[in-house]
């Protein structure tokens, strides 16, 4: 049980780091990278949480997370290829 707790804490801190990357990114691609990492780690986190709480039906939700994360990534890339013509893609974002 202690191992599961330690693993979930580790994944949670990875999520926090990836979130920090997504919040404060040099280029837009770094932001996408951070968002993707949050998504995959969330799926793992839910799987571990299901074991920690003894509720293995959480796994269905982990599957949905993995799936939705992938579709979201593809949608972001597709949008990016659309709008890549106006403005310099990959340049520094102006953030406030």
């Amino acid at each position: 049980m202690l191992v599961l707790t330690a693993t979930s804490v580790a994944i949670l801190s990875v999520m926090a780091l990836a979130l920090a990357r997504a919040l404060k990114a040099d280029t837009v691609y770094d932001r996408i990278l951070g968002v993707n990492m949050v998504g995959t780690k969330t799926a793992l986190f839910i799987a571990v949480m299901g074991f920690l709480g003894g509720r293995p039906d959480f796994l269905d939700i982990a599957i949905v997370y993995a799936l939705i994360n992938f579709i979201g990534m593809i949608a972001v890339l597709r949008f990016f290829e659309y709008t890549a013509t106006d403005g310099e893609p990959g340049d520094k974002e102006q953030s406030s």
Binding site: A25, R31, V38, E93, S95
Partner: peptide, 25 residues
Amino acid sequence: FLKDLFAVVMLFGIYSFLSALIFVN
């Protein structure tokens, strides 16, 4: 505080993931 709407949409995705995690919890 972000002005780039593209980044805002992506962060909204994260926001949804996090709130869904809270519901799971």
